[in-house]
């Protein structure tokens, strides 16, 4: 380890760029959020509005519903991915599994596919009248599946698409965690006569907790901001059934050019994201205090 000033020199370019494209925008919307600014209005300049933008925002049911919908979506997605991912990770770690490397590689595929292409692909699969999913569901099970009219079908399809896209990541990270677990506690628990469920709940889950929380953290952040896939799949419809918060901001702010209100909307979304991630982060670092 050497003196610090030269170290800063190496860090400076990266810090500078991230300051400009990461931090400056934040300060800027913080500022714009307190103004009434609409470039298409009679007076296209910034006018001080105080908290007026936020005042209208807390009564904006479309926005609040969209926020709530995003949280529900993220909740379902993260829980199902954890369960599925765990089962798959265990299956992939089975002692004799022929073609393990092949399965692993194929399984990684969805992670690297562009979200926009994922959306396009699922649209090809699910779009009514063209895709094979509605056709075979009707033919084999008699289900009228239609993502462009049925809100539940659209929401469900958005979840399944996200499962397809991101379960592989959960599988691989849980597998990394499981492989790194020490063997002794598991063997000890087996000797002590614990059944599978007990071993899972009292031995594996506590030991896996850091990995589980990290995975949840990353998946949650991604789920809260998914826009591209949904936009390609349903365009947020039918009505607003799949209009998640990122999409809501995107399709609202730019055509309307109501920048002050858009800034407030963005900031409130950021607030929710930061609070959620901070809570998870605290849980992750395990800073239990208070009662000694």
């Amino acid at each position: 380890m050497r003196q610090s000033n030269i170290g800063w020199l190496f860090l400076a370019p990266a810090t500078l760029i991230l300051f400009v494209v990461g931090f400056l925008p934040f300060i800027y919307i913080l500022y714009v959020g307190f103004f009434d600014w609409n470039t298409n209005a009679v007076d296209p300049t910034l006018r001080w509005a105080g908290l007026q933008n936020y005042r209208s925002l807390v009564f904006d049911t479309t926005f609040l519903n969209s926020l709530a919908r995003t949280l529900v979506f993220a909740f379902f997605v993260v829980i199902s991915e954890l369960l599925l991912g765990y089962i798959l990770a265990r299956a992939l770690m089975a002692d004799r599994l022929w073609g393990r490397q092949f399965f692993r590689t194929i399984h990684t595929l969805p992670i690297v596919v562009a979200p926009i292409a994922v959306g396009a692909t699922w649209r090809l699969l699910c779009v009514p009248g063209f895709g094979i999913v509605p056709y075979y569901l009707k033919l084999w099970f008699g289900i009228d599946y239609n993502i462009s009219t049925n809100a539940y079908h659209a929401f469900g399809t958005a979840i399944i698409m996200d499962l397809w896209h991101w379960t592989p990541f959960v599988t691989l990270s849980l597998m990394a965690g499981l492989t790194a677990l020490p063997k002794e506690p598991l063997e000890q628990a087996q000797i002590d006569g614990g059944n599978k469920l007990q071993i899972f709940w009292y031995v594996i889950v506590p030991m896996l907790k850091p990995v589980l929380l990290t995975t949840v953290f990353i998946r949650l952040m991604d789920a809260l901001r998914s826009v591209d896939e949904i936009w390609m799949l349903t365009k947020g419809g039918p009505a607003e059934a799949t209009r998640f918060i990122g999409l809501h901001i995107w399709i609202n702010v730019f055509p309307k050019t109501d920048y002050g209100y858009g800034a407030a909307m963005s900031l409130l979304t950021l607030y929710v994201t930061i609070v959620l991630s901070w809570l998870l982060f605290v849980a992750m670092t395990g800073r239990k205090g208070g009662a000694q």
Partner: peptide
């Protein structure tokens, strides 16, 4: 990321349910 953020000397136990430092309390 997890290993880098360990509780250090500035952290203390107060009435909050977690161990906090000055930044945490300001943030909360």
């Amino acid at each position: 990321m997890m290993a880098g953020i360990q509780p250090n000397k500035a952290d203390r136990d107060g009435f909050l349910p977690i161990r906090t430092n000055g930044f945490d309390r300001g943030f909360i």
